[in-house]
Design a protein around this nucleic acid. Structure first.
Length: 264
DNA sequence: AGTACCACCTGACGGC
DNA sequence: TGCCGTCAGGTGGTAC
Protein backbone atom coordinates (compact mmCIF):
# COMPACT_ATOMS: atom_id res chain seq x y z
CA UNK A 1 0.00 0.00 0.00
CA UNK A 2 2.44 2.65 1.07
CA UNK A 3 3.37 4.82 -1.87
CA UNK A 4 3.28 8.62 -1.74
CA UNK A 5 -0.53 9.03 -1.53
CA UNK A 6 -0.81 6.35 1.16
CA UNK A 7 1.95 7.90 3.23
CA UNK A 8 0.32 11.30 2.84
CA UNK A 9 -2.88 9.83 4.27
CA UNK A 10 -0.83 8.37 7.15
CA UNK A 11 0.51 11.87 7.77
CA UNK A 12 -2.98 13.32 7.93
CA UNK A 13 -3.96 10.52 10.28
CA UNK A 14 -0.91 11.01 12.47
CA UNK A 15 -1.48 14.78 12.63
CA UNK A 16 -5.07 14.37 13.77
CA UNK A 17 -4.28 11.74 16.38
CA UNK A 18 -0.75 11.60 17.74
CA UNK A 19 0.49 15.19 17.84
CA UNK A 20 0.98 17.17 21.07
CA UNK A 21 0.31 14.33 23.46
CA UNK A 22 2.76 13.16 26.07
CA UNK A 23 4.27 9.80 25.17
CA UNK A 24 4.05 7.69 28.32
CA UNK A 25 5.23 4.29 27.10
CA UNK A 26 6.66 2.51 24.08
CA UNK A 27 6.23 -1.20 23.57
CA UNK A 28 8.32 -2.85 20.88
CA UNK A 29 7.04 -6.28 19.91
CA UNK A 30 9.46 -6.85 17.04
CA UNK A 31 12.99 -5.47 16.93
CA UNK A 32 13.22 -6.22 13.20
CA UNK A 33 11.54 -2.94 12.34
CA UNK A 34 14.11 -0.91 14.26
CA UNK A 35 16.61 0.68 11.89
CA UNK A 36 19.51 2.54 13.46
CA UNK A 37 18.54 2.18 17.10
CA UNK A 38 17.87 -0.43 19.76
CA UNK A 39 14.65 -0.71 21.71
CA UNK A 40 15.85 0.72 24.99
CA UNK A 41 17.31 3.81 23.31
CA UNK A 42 14.07 4.39 21.43
CA UNK A 43 12.15 4.18 24.70
CA UNK A 44 14.45 6.50 26.59
CA UNK A 45 14.53 9.00 23.70
CA UNK A 46 10.76 9.21 23.31
CA UNK A 47 9.14 8.59 26.66
CA UNK A 48 8.08 11.83 28.27
CA UNK A 49 8.30 13.76 24.96
CA UNK A 50 5.61 14.82 22.49
CA UNK A 51 5.39 14.64 18.71
CA UNK A 52 5.31 18.25 17.54
CA UNK A 53 5.04 18.17 13.73
CA UNK A 54 5.32 15.86 10.74
CA UNK A 55 6.87 15.98 7.30
CA UNK A 56 6.55 13.65 4.36
CA UNK A 57 9.10 13.12 1.63
CA UNK A 58 8.31 10.47 -0.97
CA UNK A 59 7.31 7.33 0.91
CA UNK A 60 8.93 8.47 4.16
CA UNK A 61 7.09 10.02 7.09
CA UNK A 62 8.99 12.01 9.71
CA UNK A 63 7.77 13.25 13.08
CA UNK A 64 9.66 15.74 15.20
CA UNK A 65 9.91 15.40 18.96
CA UNK A 66 9.79 18.06 21.62
CA UNK A 67 13.56 17.71 22.07
CA UNK A 68 14.15 18.59 18.39
CA UNK A 69 15.14 15.15 17.24
CA UNK A 70 13.07 13.29 14.65
CA UNK A 71 11.70 9.81 14.14
CA UNK A 72 11.45 8.30 10.67
CA UNK A 73 8.73 5.88 9.59
CA UNK A 74 9.04 3.80 6.46
CA UNK A 75 6.30 1.31 5.73
CA UNK A 76 7.76 -1.24 3.33
CA UNK A 77 5.19 -3.19 1.31
CA UNK A 78 2.67 -3.67 4.09
CA UNK A 79 2.54 -1.02 6.77
CA UNK A 80 0.25 1.54 8.31
CA UNK A 81 -0.63 3.38 11.51
CA UNK A 82 -3.55 2.77 13.85
CA UNK A 83 -4.74 4.93 16.71
CA UNK A 84 -7.16 3.54 19.29
CA UNK A 85 -8.01 3.43 22.95
CA UNK A 86 -7.94 -0.23 23.89
CA UNK A 87 -4.95 -2.41 23.19
CA UNK A 88 -6.13 -5.62 21.63
CA UNK A 89 -3.82 -8.55 22.07
CA UNK A 90 -5.05 -10.22 18.91
CA UNK A 91 -3.19 -7.86 16.59
CA UNK A 92 -0.03 -9.77 15.71
CA UNK A 93 1.30 -7.20 13.23
CA UNK A 94 1.48 -4.29 15.65
CA UNK A 95 5.24 -3.91 15.92
CA UNK A 96 5.60 -0.70 17.94
CA UNK A 97 2.95 0.67 20.28
CA UNK A 98 3.22 4.30 21.38
CA UNK A 99 1.05 5.03 24.40
CA UNK A 100 -0.09 8.55 25.29
CA UNK A 101 -1.11 10.23 28.52
CA UNK A 102 -4.72 10.44 27.31
CA UNK A 103 -4.96 6.66 27.38
CA UNK A 104 -4.81 6.21 23.61
CA UNK A 105 -2.23 4.29 21.61
CA UNK A 106 -0.67 4.63 18.18
CA UNK A 107 0.61 1.43 16.60
CA UNK A 108 3.11 1.05 13.81
CA UNK A 109 1.80 -1.94 11.90
CA UNK A 110 4.05 -3.96 9.61
CA UNK A 111 2.86 -7.38 8.56
CA UNK A 112 5.88 -8.41 6.53
CA UNK A 113 8.44 -6.63 8.67
CA UNK A 114 9.88 -4.86 5.65
CA UNK A 115 9.29 -1.39 7.10
CA UNK A 116 11.77 0.49 9.29
CA UNK A 117 11.64 3.04 12.09
CA UNK A 118 14.74 5.09 12.93
CA UNK A 119 15.77 8.09 14.97
CA UNK A 120 17.38 10.80 12.85
CA UNK A 121 18.68 14.32 13.36
CA UNK A 122 16.31 15.90 10.80
CA UNK A 123 14.55 15.07 7.50
CA UNK A 124 16.85 17.18 5.29
CA UNK A 125 19.89 15.34 6.50
CA UNK A 126 18.16 11.97 6.05
CA UNK A 127 17.11 12.86 2.50
CA UNK A 128 20.69 13.86 1.63
CA UNK A 129 22.21 10.78 3.24
CA UNK A 130 19.88 8.47 1.33
CA UNK A 131 20.29 10.53 -1.85
CA UNK A 132 16.53 10.73 -2.31
CA UNK A 133 15.34 12.70 -5.30
CA UNK A 134 12.78 15.51 -5.06
CA UNK A 135 9.32 14.60 -3.82
CA UNK A 136 7.07 13.72 -6.74
CA UNK A 137 4.46 16.31 -5.73
CA UNK A 138 7.03 19.09 -5.27
CA UNK A 139 9.35 18.59 -8.25
CA UNK A 140 8.99 21.29 -10.91
CA UNK A 141 8.93 20.81 -14.65
CA UNK A 142 12.39 22.28 -15.22
CA UNK A 143 14.25 19.99 -12.86
CA UNK A 144 12.10 17.05 -13.96
CA UNK A 145 12.98 17.64 -17.61
CA UNK A 146 16.60 18.25 -16.74
CA UNK A 147 16.91 14.94 -14.88
CA UNK A 148 14.83 12.84 -17.22
CA UNK A 149 16.33 14.04 -20.47
CA UNK A 150 19.57 12.35 -19.39
CA UNK A 151 18.05 8.97 -18.50
CA UNK A 152 18.30 5.99 -20.81
CA UNK A 153 16.39 3.46 -18.73
CA UNK A 154 12.82 2.23 -19.19
CA UNK A 155 10.40 4.97 -18.26
CA UNK A 156 8.74 2.81 -15.61
CA UNK A 157 12.08 2.07 -13.97
CA UNK A 158 12.98 5.76 -14.04
CA UNK A 159 9.83 7.07 -12.36
CA UNK A 160 10.11 4.38 -9.67
CA UNK A 161 13.72 5.24 -8.89
CA UNK A 162 13.60 7.02 -5.53
CA UNK A 163 16.95 8.70 -6.15
CA UNK A 164 15.49 10.32 -9.26
CA UNK A 165 11.99 11.20 -8.09
CA UNK A 166 10.68 10.20 -4.70
CA UNK A 167 7.30 8.67 -3.92
CA UNK A 168 6.16 6.57 -6.91
CA UNK A 169 5.88 2.80 -6.45
CA UNK A 170 4.74 -0.09 -8.60
CA UNK A 171 0.99 0.59 -8.54
CA UNK A 172 1.13 4.32 -9.21
CA UNK A 173 3.85 3.92 -11.83
CA UNK A 174 1.48 1.73 -13.83
CA UNK A 175 -1.39 4.18 -13.29
CA UNK A 176 0.66 7.21 -14.34
CA UNK A 177 1.91 5.54 -17.53
CA UNK A 178 -1.61 4.33 -18.32
CA UNK A 179 -3.00 7.84 -17.94
CA UNK A 180 -0.14 9.28 -19.97
CA UNK A 181 -0.59 6.70 -22.74
CA UNK A 182 3.08 5.72 -22.58
CA UNK A 183 4.34 2.14 -22.87
CA UNK A 184 6.26 1.22 -19.68
CA UNK A 185 9.25 -0.09 -21.64
CA UNK A 186 9.78 3.13 -23.59
CA UNK A 187 13.29 4.43 -23.09
CA UNK A 188 13.18 7.78 -21.35
CA UNK A 189 15.49 9.49 -23.83
CA UNK A 190 13.13 8.42 -26.64
CA UNK A 191 10.26 10.41 -25.20
CA UNK A 192 9.42 13.56 -27.14
CA UNK A 193 9.27 16.89 -25.32
CA UNK A 194 5.50 16.67 -25.47
CA UNK A 195 5.48 13.18 -23.96
CA UNK A 196 7.87 14.24 -21.21
CA UNK A 197 5.58 17.14 -20.33
CA UNK A 198 2.58 14.84 -20.40
CA UNK A 199 4.38 12.37 -18.13
CA UNK A 200 5.15 15.19 -15.72
CA UNK A 201 1.58 16.45 -15.64
CA UNK A 202 0.16 12.93 -15.22
CA UNK A 203 2.50 12.28 -12.30
CA UNK A 204 1.06 15.36 -10.62
CA UNK A 205 -2.51 14.62 -11.63
CA UNK A 206 -2.61 10.96 -10.58
CA UNK A 207 -0.81 11.52 -7.29
CA UNK A 208 -2.82 14.57 -6.27
CA UNK A 209 -6.07 12.85 -7.24
CA UNK A 210 -5.10 9.91 -5.04
CA UNK A 211 -4.11 12.24 -2.18
CA UNK A 212 -7.43 14.08 -2.44
CA UNK A 213 -9.25 10.74 -2.28
CA UNK A 214 -7.23 9.73 0.77
CA UNK A 215 -5.58 6.96 -1.29
CA UNK A 216 -8.85 5.04 -1.20
CA UNK A 217 -8.73 3.13 -4.48
CA UNK A 218 -12.47 2.39 -4.35
CA UNK A 219 -13.09 6.09 -4.95
CA UNK A 220 -10.70 6.49 -7.88
CA UNK A 221 -12.06 7.75 -11.22
CA UNK A 222 -13.64 5.07 -13.36
CA UNK A 223 -11.12 5.45 -16.17
CA UNK A 224 -8.22 4.56 -13.88
CA UNK A 225 -6.31 1.31 -14.37
CA UNK A 226 -6.26 0.34 -10.71
CA UNK A 227 -9.57 -1.55 -10.51
CA UNK A 228 -8.71 -3.56 -13.63
CA UNK A 229 -5.06 -4.07 -12.84
CA UNK A 230 -5.17 -7.78 -13.60
CA UNK A 231 -4.18 -9.79 -16.64
CA UNK A 232 -6.97 -10.18 -19.15
CA UNK A 233 -9.24 -7.55 -17.59
CA UNK A 234 -10.71 -4.91 -19.85
CA UNK A 235 -9.07 -1.55 -20.34
CA UNK A 236 -11.21 1.17 -18.77
CA UNK A 237 -10.49 3.51 -21.69
CA UNK A 238 -10.71 1.35 -24.84
CA UNK A 239 -12.09 -2.01 -23.69
CA UNK A 240 -9.01 -3.88 -24.89
CA UNK A 241 -7.20 -6.50 -22.85
CA UNK A 242 -4.81 -5.53 -20.09
CA UNK A 243 -1.39 -7.17 -20.51
CA UNK A 244 1.06 -8.19 -17.82
CA UNK A 245 4.82 -8.11 -18.19
CA UNK A 246 7.78 -8.00 -15.83
CA UNK A 247 10.04 -4.99 -15.56
CA UNK A 248 12.97 -5.39 -13.18
CA UNK A 249 11.11 -8.28 -11.62
CA UNK A 250 8.01 -6.23 -10.80
CA UNK A 251 4.65 -7.02 -12.33
CA UNK A 252 3.64 -4.36 -14.81
CA UNK A 253 0.12 -3.95 -16.20
CA UNK A 254 -0.72 -1.87 -19.24
CA UNK A 255 -3.03 -1.58 -22.22
CA UNK A 256 -1.20 -2.30 -25.50
CA UNK A 257 -3.79 -0.27 -27.42
CA UNK A 258 -3.62 2.88 -25.30
CA UNK A 259 0.09 2.57 -24.53
CA UNK A 260 1.59 1.69 -27.85
CA UNK A 261 5.24 0.73 -27.98
CA UNK A 262 7.21 2.86 -30.36
CA UNK A 263 10.50 1.44 -31.55
CA UNK A 264 13.59 3.63 -31.27
C1' DA B 1 24.60 3.20 -16.74
C1' DG B 2 21.17 -0.12 -16.87
C1' DT B 3 19.11 -4.64 -15.92
C1' DA B 4 18.26 -9.08 -13.81
C1' DC B 5 18.18 -11.49 -9.82
C1' DC B 6 18.43 -12.38 -4.86
C1' DA B 7 17.55 -11.35 0.02
C1' DC B 8 14.76 -9.66 3.59
C1' DC B 9 9.64 -11.36 5.64
C1' DT B 10 4.57 -13.00 6.18
C1' DG B 11 0.45 -14.64 4.34
C1' DA B 12 -3.08 -15.44 0.71
C1' DC B 13 -4.24 -18.14 -3.13
C1' DG B 14 -4.56 -21.74 -6.68
C1' DG B 15 -3.24 -26.31 -8.37
C1' DC B 16 -2.75 -31.01 -7.40
C1' DT C 1 -7.24 -31.57 3.86
C1' DG C 2 -2.56 -30.52 3.15
C1' DC C 3 1.49 -29.40 0.70
C1' DC C 4 3.90 -26.42 -2.60
C1' DG C 5 4.95 -22.91 -5.73
C1' DT C 6 3.87 -18.19 -6.72
C1' DC C 7 2.71 -13.76 -5.81
C1' DA C 8 2.15 -9.22 -3.20
C1' DG C 9 1.97 -1.66 -3.33
C1' DG C 10 9.63 -1.67 -0.91
C1' DT C 11 14.65 -1.29 -0.62
C1' DG C 12 19.39 -2.63 -1.05
C1' DG C 13 22.99 -5.39 -2.72
C1' DT C 14 25.31 -8.26 -6.31
C1' DA C 15 26.89 -9.66 -10.93
C1' DC C 16 27.06 -8.93 -15.75
Amino acid sequence: MPELPDVESFKTYFDSTALHKKITDIDITSKKVLGNINGSSLKSELEGKKFTQTYRHGKYLFASLSNNSWIMFHFGMTGNLRYFKKIKHSRPHDRIIFSFSNGYHLTYVSQRLLGRVSLISNPDNFIKMHRLGPDALRINLDSFSETFSKKRSFVKTAIMEQKVISGIGNIYADEILFQAGIHPKTKVNRLSNGELKKLFSKIKEVLSTAVDLNADVDKFPSDYLIANRKEGKSCSKCGGKINKIKISNRSTYFCPECQEKKDN
